[in-house]
């Protein structure tokens, strides 16, 4: 289970969800990224690595000036996200929605190995509306982090219109019957 919480100060949380995304974990624990992290003034980096290969780091350590820790799964993903200043996530719809609802600055990295084009589609569409920063792949992670750290133009998601769908269902059930098959 999860390591004890990171030290105070601004930090970055990386999540790959329930699958594996070794390329993202590797990019987020590589020296260039850690150096950029420190240069941007972050005190800690924490990774949720899922089922993938373990990072070449102890579960908790200090690299350069930043405290780095990782774990595989947690029951409290929202809690982990809420602690972070910036969330770096795979392109899964659930994780994206969770981070945006917590009003986190979000960097999304689509997993090319999944061949799941519509995930990249979602990230691209949300990036176009300035809800998040979409990295083209793990190689673009450093620049995406810098863009998210400096960006003050993040647009929050609109509020949920909770009445719209029930209204549509009620409206449909009030309509007179019609036969669509025969």
């Amino acid at each position: 289970m999860a390591e004890p919480p990171p030290p105070p100060g601004p930090g970055v949380f990386v999540t790959v969800g329930t699958t594996e995304f070794d390329a993202l974990v590797a990019a987020a624990t590589a020296p260039p990224f850690l150096a950029r992290l420190e240069a941007l003034g972050f005190a800690w980096l924490r990774l949720q690595v899922g089922r993938g290969a373990a990072p070449h780091l102890p579960a908790a350590s200090t690299v350069g000036g930043a405290h780095v820790s990782w774990f595989r799964f947690t029951r409290d993903l929202p809690g982990e996200m809420a602690r972070a200043h910036i969330v770096v996530s795979h392109a899964g719809a659930g994780s994206i929605l969770e981070a945006l609802e917590l009003k986190r600055r979000l960097v999304v990295v689509p997993n090319a190995a999944l061949m799941d084009d519509h995930q990249a589609e979602l990230a691209g569409a949300l990036a176009a509306d300035r809800h998040l920063v979409a990295a083209p792949g793990p190689a673009g992670l450093c620049d995406a982090l810098a863009a998210a750290a400096s960006g003050d133009g993040f647009a929050p998601l609109g509020e949920v219109d909770a009445a719209a769908f029930p209204r549509l269902v009620d409206d449909e059930m009030r309509r007179p019957g019609r036969c669509v098959i025969l």
């Binding site: 589609e121 979602l122 059930m173």
Partner: peptide
Amino acid sequence: GVAAGARLIFVESWCRVES
């Protein structure tokens, strides 16, 4: 369900943007 006379309301997934 449709064959049995029910109304079908289909909601596409949030992640379907283009197709």
